[in-house]
């Protein structure tokens, strides 16, 4: 069965979704990501959807789930590269993805994760004293 590859990029994981998702692929991705976050001690998850021509409520729900799970495992999820037509359609559909962070591209997404890492480290450091 096909699986979506997960790349490690510093302290973050990068997933590029390029195919039209069906249920099994989505479930497999959720499972793989959960395990990889723990094993790689990842602090962030970047999901690049710039290749996706549509995001329906099924994919939207998957993104929301991944964000909620990774948050529990102390990793931030950033969805990057959503196309304008997809964004307009999602808003019309009524899906706001309020639980996930967004960025224009992978680079900006990485910045976001790095900034969060610095902030949490600073906060943790302050708490130790």
């Amino acid at each position: 069965m096909d699986r979506i590859p997960i790349l490690k990029l510093g302290s973050a994981l990068l997933v590029t979704i390029q195919v039209d998702m069906h249920d099994r692929l989505a479930t497999a991705l959720q499972e793989d990501l959960t395990e990889k976050i723990v094993s790689a001690r990842a602090k962030g998850v970047l999901i690049d959807i710039s290749a996706l021509e549509i995001v329906d409520s099924f994919i939207g729900r998957m993104l929301d789930h991944i964000a909620a799970i990774s948050r529990m495992l102390d990793a931030e999820t950033v969805v990057v590269g959503m196309r304008p037509a997809v964004a307009i359609t999602l808003v019309e559909l009524g899906l706001s993805l309020s639980g996930v962070k967004t960025a224009l591209n992978v680079e900006r997404g990485m910045d976001l994760i790095r900034r969060r890492l610095i902030e949490t480290e600073a906060a943790d450091g302050a708490g130790d004293e």
């Binding site: 021509e53 549509i54 995001v55 329906d56 099924f58 037509a85 307009i88 359609t89 019309e92 559909l93």
Partner: peptide
Amino acid sequence: VDQTKIVTAASE
């Protein structure tokens, strides 16, 4: 945009 809307509706 209209293509995206109708394809998304079809998917739903």
